[in-house]
Design a protein around this nucleic acid. Structure first.
Lengths: 221, 221
DNA sequence: ATGTCAATTAATATCGATATTTTACCTAGG
DNA sequence: CCTAGGTAAAATATCGATATTAATTGACAT
C-alpha cells in the first residue's frame, strides 16, 4: 500500500515522504511521542531509507518530529503545556502579523482574501481534507500582506502544530455551540474594512475559543 | 583538511557536519546566498554525502539554509529587510520571554544568571569564539525561566540569525562608542531585582542599538 | 547575430549494502 | 533474588555506486 500520492507526479521521493509523514503526524496516524523507525516507515511509504531520513530531518524544522542523536526519531510529544505554548505564541505572532497585514493590505490582497474566504465556505460541504486546506489558506491569506516572510513562516508552523491538537481531541458539545462561519465572517469584514484592531480582536477570540474547548478536552495534564 | 573537530570525539558524522556547516555560515565562511554543493562540502568536511545532506536539512530548520527541491541547497540569502525582520521578531519574542523569565525566576536561576554573566566578562579577554559562546549563554540564561521551550527555541534561532549579520557588517565607530559591558550589567541588575519592565527595556535598547549600528553598515538595500 | 534544440556534462537524489550503536536478553556471580 | 557483565538482535548511521534530473555547451537554422 503506497501512502505517497503519485497521481500528480511527485517532484521527489523526499518531498513525497515529507508530505506523507507530515500528514500522518498531523492527523494522529502516527501518535505523538511514538518512535519512528526508519525501516517501518520505509516500507510503509515504499521508498528508500535516505528520503525517509531526510524527510524526518525536515519535519524537525516544523517541530513535528524530534531527533535523538544516535537513537533515531520520534513524533513530537503532545501535552497540555505544549498546546498552551502554541496558543500563546499564535495569539502574539498572528496578532502582530494580522495587524500589519490589514494595515498594508492592497486591493489585490482584499480580492485574494475574499476569494479564499469564499472557497473555504464552499469547501465546507466537501471532505475534511479539502476544507482543512481551504481553512489554512484563508488564515494564511489574512496575514500574507504583513511584509515579513519569517513571521508568516512562524505562523504557518504554529497553525500546523495546532491542527494536530484539533485531531487529538474529540469533538465536544462546546464546539458545536459555536458559529464558526460567523466568526470567520467577522474577521473577514474587519480585515476588508482595514480595521486592524477589530480584525485582531476577532481573530484572537476565534483562537481562544478553540483553545478553551481543546483545553477542556485534554485528559493529559 | 578536516573541518570537523574530532578532539572531543563527535557523536555522529551528521552532528559534526551540522555544527561545522552552521559555524561556517554564521561566520560568513560560506557567504549568504551561495550554492552549497554536496560534493564540495563532502570533501571539505571529509565525510559522506548522507551526513552532509542531513545536516543541510537540519540547517533548514534554523533558516540558515534554503532547500530548492531537486536543485540542491544554498546558504540563506541576507538582506537589510531580513535583518530588520529578525530584529523586530527578537524584540517581541525575547521581550516576552524575558518578562516571563524574570517574573518566574527562582533563586537557582538568579545564581545561574550571575554565573553566566561572570563567565561572559571573563571570556571577553579570550578569543572571539569563546566570548561568543559565553555571550549567547548569558542571553539564553536570561530567558530560560520563561517556561516555554518553544519560545526559547525561537529566541535561540533568532539570536543565531543575528550573529550572522554582526559578522557580515564590519566594525564601525558607532559600535565603539557603546559600553556593552555596562549594557549587560543593566540588564542583569534589573533581572536579579525581578524588575521585569526595566530588564525588558534595557534588553530591547541593547538590541536596538546593535540594530541601528548594523543597519547603518549595510550597503545592501 | 540570435534563439532553439540536442547532446554532453555536472550535480542531485536515491538505492542497497555495511559498519556502528543501542537495546534486549540471558547467564553467572554475589 | 538481584545485579553486573557480556552476548545476540535490532535499529541507526554511513558509505559507495547508480539513476535522475538540471545546467551547459555548441551546432544549426532563422
Amino acid at each position: 500500500m503506497n501512502m505517497i500520492d503519485n497521481s500528480g507526479k511527485e517532484t521527489s521521493a523526499t518531498r513525497g515522504a515529507y508530505l506523507a509523514l507530515r500528514e500522518m503526524i498531523l492527523l494522529g496516524k502516527l501518535p505523538a511521542g511514538q518512535k519512528l523507525k526508519i525501516e517501518q516507515l520505509r516500507s510503509m511509504l515504499n521508498t528508500g531509507a535516505s528520503p525517509v531520513r531526510e524527510a524526518l530531518s525536515l519535519l524537525t524544522s516544523d517541530m513535528l518530529v524530534e531527533r535523538i542523536d544516535q537513537r533515531g526519531f520520534r513524533a513530537a510529544p503532545a501535552s497540555k503545556a505544549n498546546f498552551e505554548e502554541i496558543l500563546t505564541l499564535r495569539c502574539v505572532l498572528e496578532g502582530m502579523a494580522l495587524r500589519q497585514s490589514v494595515t498594508n493590505g492592497s486591493p489585490e490582497w482584499e480580492e485574494r482574501l475574499i476569494l479564499s474566504h469564499h472557497r473555504m465556505n464552499r469547501a465546507a460541504s466537501q471532505d475534511t481534507a479539502t476544507f482543512e486546506d481551504a481553512h489554512k489558506t484563508f488564515h494564511m491569506t489574512l496575514i500574507d500582506s504583513c511584509g515579513s516572510p519569517m513571521l508568516e513562516r512562524y505562523c504557518s508552523q504554529l497553525y500546523d502544530l495546532n491542527i494536530r491538537y484539533r485531531y487529538l481531541a474529540a469533538v465536544s458539545d462546546t464546539y458545536q455551540k459555536r458559529d464558526i462561519p460567523a466568526e470567520h465572517q467577522q474577521i473577514l469584514d474587519a480585515a476588508v474594512k482595514h480595521d486592524a484592531d477589530a480584525a485582531v480582536e476577532h481573530l484572537l477570540s476565534h483562537y481562544r475559543l478553540t483553545g478553551e474547548y481543546l483545553t477542556n478536552q485534554m485528559s493529559d495534564p
